[in-house]
Nucleic acid binder design. Structure first.
Lengths: 222, 222
DNA sequence: TTATTTCTTTAGATTTTTTTTAGATTTGGA
DNA sequence: TCCAAATCTAAAAAAAATCTAAAGAAATAA
């Protein structure tokens, strides 16, 4: 049975969707705000998320952004009609589909099924599990020699990128455009600094330096 | 700005997608059949291809097959709903994603962006892969008799240039203008020095001198 | 709001690479 | 043979890229 998470602050809408989906044979979890929504997703690993844009505590944009750092599960965004101009940004941000309120439950069902179907055939990023020598990444946590290490999300993204292709040399442009999703205009030492910080944290747990500087070209794992 | 090629025989659909993508800041090229589509791709080197399956002259399958002999650019296949059973074959053939007609343009946009993103992080196959006797170049790494050798980026560029045309004699001007992308004003021994350093590094790993000096003319491999 | 964390920018130190220099060596031709 | 031009290479100088601490800015949490 497929699991669906609903992140929605309006309790009536939430109940309505929940009942409807349970009737249609889904397992449903819900959370009333962004923060709890993210926790929920990490806990129950749903197959699809229905996300209200207007959330207390952590708004929809941020929720998608955070989710997308570690998973590709389909996210259907729900928003009031007046917010429609932001839909393109949402898709850009990483939402898979959107609907405006008020919506027809059957239309929602159709979209859920379409998106679930798609995510089966699409290559899954969900549930990252990487390992390289003494570094291990599971979901959003990094471990070095088994000890959890607190990387910031940018640091973790860079580390994951490197870990995904341990042979490849990544130019700063590669890294920047992969992580920030925007053009790399000029070198402002941002990447350098993050690399430096990553190294510092790694060094606390192990003697070896895992990141190699390839002069004039970029960085790679070593 | 990213370039997208559309290979689609229905002129209305083609125009619709073209307009939409131009509005979303892409540079768009299109071709009405498979043959022209392939020419187009060779000419404009798009970052992503949207390919209709049902094409006159050369059908979609063959187009993918041909494209895949020399490139890894993402290909999103578009097909009529009745053709859906072939989607797995398509993915197998080398397509990266597919959509059935009629489709939502925002969904297309989302998929385009997802696939472009993926291709940034994927290891590049377009990368250089050269071999000459005991010297091998893969990605940005040079190997001699299997051992990695640390060339600087300028040295590597020169070596790659020579390796690309092992027969050709390169004048210093040739080399300078290829690598530095500017006019070769006078001989300041820069090339000499780099050649010397390359030789030194090669000599550490093998007895033979791979670079031949052609007096009064330039250098070539030997 | 204020406090805290994270990210970006800055600036000077450091490291590596590139270019220049200079003297030695090699080459081809007179 | 000897000479002049071309090439070689070690070493010095210059330039460029990178590193990192620390400050400032921005985002997030309380």
């Amino acid at each position: 049975m497929k699991k669906i998470a609903i992140i929605e602050d309006d309790i009536d809408i939430c109940n309505m969707i929940t009942k409807f989906l349970i009737n249609h044979n889904y397992e449903v979890y819900s959370a009333p705000n962004g923060r709890e929504g993210i926790d929920l997703c990490q806990k129950f690993l749903p197959d699809l998320i229905i996300l209200d844009l207007m959330l207390p505590i952590l708004n929809g944009d941020s929720v998608i952004k955070q989710l997308r750092t570690y998973t590709d599960i389909p996210v259907i965004v729900v928003s009031a009609k007046t917010m429609v101009q932001s839909k393109i940004d949402l898709l850009r941000l990483g939402a898979d589909d959107y609907m405006t309120k008020p919506f027809n439950l059957f239309e929602l069902l159709a979209r859920i099924e379409a998106n679930l179907k798609r995510s089966v055939t699409a290559p899954m990023k969900a549930d990252i599990h990487l390992k390289y020598k003494d570094i291990k990444i599971e979901n959003c946590n990094a471990y070095i020699k088994g000890a959890i290490v607190q990387f910031t999300s940018t640091e973790l993204s860079i580390l994951i990128l490197l870990l995904q292709y341990p042979q490849k040399i990544f130019s700063k442009q590669n890294i920047y455009e992969s992580i920030w999703q925007e053009e790399y205009a000029y070198d402002n030492d941002t990447i350098n600094t993050h690399i430096s910080n990553i190294r510092k944290k790694i060094k606390k747990h192990t003697d070896t330096d895992y990141i190699e500087t390839v002069w004039g070209i970029g960085y790679k794992l070593k």
